[in-house]
């Protein structure tokens, strides 16, 4: 009983990490129709920055905003050049451009942060365990679950329920029309890309406590995030959340029941989803020509 309760918590915390990583990718895809494969780099940058911050002795809770800012800043620069030139290009060209950039960033980070594996020193308050009956569960993972849920809700609220969100969504539907209202759409796009990259950094900072950081983590996370976002339905908010939960739970429970086949089983289930729903779990309406 307590065994399965803790396994559900395990699955939830892992899903939250997947969701957080996927959200940044999903935001840019849904709002700008832009595929940003440097998202894994944002994740790793955030992870390294937070590890460095936590090791420096400064107040620990600032590590997360700092990681957010660092990655957001990188995103800001990238948006100006070269992303902006590629908004109107095909997905394929966007994939190629950003994949190439992610290769460059991977090597730059390897250069700057070294090839050694790095792990954060978590603050006392986050490094304990709670007991579910007799089974231990780390407080840090609870923190991830709560943090992830709050962040997802906040994001949904901003995009779906505020005037800012409405403006951004309007930009996607008809950019010229928004411009006639006197709004600077270029700036709006810049902000969206920067925030999304920041989200990547933030999830990296959170994830580092579980995953550590090392060259190659960027690619691993990118692939997971891509699977989550695409199976969810290319950047629909609900789709990303649903798909992250699905992947998180299957990866956790296949490890419990059939550890040797867990990867195959998880992959097969995600493939099955795409076979059943070729447009993703929650499909957007797309006009075809």
């Amino acid at each position: 009983m307590s065994f399965y309760l803790v396994q559900i918590l395990n699955a939830l915390s892992f899903s939250m990490l997947l969701m957080l990583t996927g959200l940044g990718l999903s935001v840019v895809l849904s709002l700008l129709n832009f595929v940003n494969l440097t998202h894994g780099s944002s994740f790793l940058l955030g992870a390294y920055v937070s590890i460095w911050w936590l090791g420096s002795g400064a107040p620990w809770w600032l590590a997360f905003p700092v990681a957010f800012l660092a990655s957001a800043l990188a995103g800001l620069v990238l948006e100006r050049f070269p992303f902006r030139q590629f908004y109107t290009r095909t997905h394929l060209m966007q994939v190629l451009l950003t994949y190439g950039l992610s290769v460059i960033f991977a090597d730059l980070m390897r250069w700057g942060f070294g090839a050694q594996i790095a792990s954060p020193e978590l603050p006392e308050i986050l490094s304990g365990v709670i007991f579910v009956f007799d089974m231990p569960f780390p407080i840090y993972r609870l923190f991830i679950i709560v943090f992830g849920a709050v962040l997802a809700l906040a994001l949904w609220f901003v995009i779906d329920r505020t005037i800012w969100g409405a403006v951004v969504r309007a930009c996607v539907t008809d950019r010229r029309f928004v411009e006639t209202l006197g709004l600077d759409t270029k700036r709006i796009f810049t902000i969206v890309v920067a925030v999304a990259a920041g989200l990547g950094g933030l999830s990296g900072a959170l994830g580092a406590g579980v995953l550590s950081a090392y060259p190659g983590l960027d690619e691993e996370q990118l692939i997971l995030a891509l699977i989550v976002v695409v199976v969810g339905g290319l950047g629909t908010f609900r789709g990303t959340v649903l798909s992250a939960l699905l992947l998180g739970f299957t990866m956790t429970f296949t490890k419990v029941w059939i550890p040797e086949m867990s990867n195959v089983a998880a992959l097969a289930i995600m493939a099955l989803m795409l076979v059943i729903a070729p447009q993703g779990l929650v499909a957007r309406k797309v006009r075809q020509v």
């Binding site: 395990n10 915390s13 691993e220 956790t252 419990v256």
Partner: peptide, 9 residues
């Protein structure tokens, strides 16, 4: 990435 399920076992 996540040893959680195995560690719980």
């Amino acid at each position: 990435t996540d040893f959680g399920p195995l560690l719980t076992a």
